[in-house]
Computed example of a mutant assay.
Amino acid sequence: MESHDKDEPLETRLVQVLGQVQGVGYREACVRRARELGVTGWVRNRTDGSVEAMLQGSPEQVAALCAWLSEGMSAALVEALEVTEMPPPFARFDNFERLPTL
């Protein structure tokens, strides 16, 4: 999928992924999947053992990545997603990247 058009409506969501999601390649897999879907934003580990991601894209793109985040990958055990809608105005992200641990 291609990244979103500058004129298309965007959704921005902050997602916290709870479970056994660190140390298994989850963030790298998330970056790959986000880029495949055309979602922009970032992902990082948190010191509490969760993974946090800021997602931006069309409603369909964001929903598809949230679905992937909830399933995770075979080495991860996702227990829950906490999704927070970020109301406009918000900055537009240019790509999807991995950030340092918070």
Rank of each mutant, 00 (worst) to 15 (best):
M73H: 12
D48S: 07
A64P: 01
E82A: 10
M73A: 07
L10C: 05
A34Y: 05
D48M: 10
D5I: 08
A67K: 13
L10R: 14
P88T: 10
E85P: 06
W42V: 02
P9I: 06
A80Q: 12
S50T: 14
S70C: 05
S3Q: 15
E28K: 14
N95D: 14
Y26F: 15
Y26D: 01
D94P: 00
K6I: 02
R44T: 02
L69T: 07
E79F: 01
C66P: 03
F90E: 04
V51H: 02
E60W: 00
E36C: 08
G57Y: 04
C30P: 00
L77F: 13
P88N: 06
V39P: 04
E79K: 10
W68K: 14
T84D: 10
F90T: 04
V39E: 05
W68T: 13
D7E: 13
A63F: 00
V51I: 02
A80N: 11
E60A: 10
D94Q: 06
W42G: 05
V43A: 09
P88C: 05
Q22R: 08
V15I: 08
Q22W: 08
P89Q: 01
A76V: 04
A91L: 10
G25T: 06
P87T: 11
P9C: 07
M1G: 12
R44Q: 11
T101V: 13
P88A: 13
A75D: 10
S50L: 02
A80H: 10
P100N: 08
V24D: 00
E28Y: 15
G49K: 08
L102D: 15
G49M: 09
E36K: 12
G41V: 01
V31L: 09
P87M: 11
P87D: 13
R27I: 04
P88R: 12
A80S: 13
R98E: 15
P59L: 09
F93C: 12
C66A: 11
V24M: 00
S70A: 12
G38R: 03
G41Q: 03
Q22K: 07
R32D: 10
E85Q: 11
G41F: 03
L37P: 08
A76N: 04
R35C: 11
D94M: 01
E11P: 08
A53L: 01
V21L: 11
C66V: 11
E8K: 07
V62A: 00
M86G: 00
L18V: 14
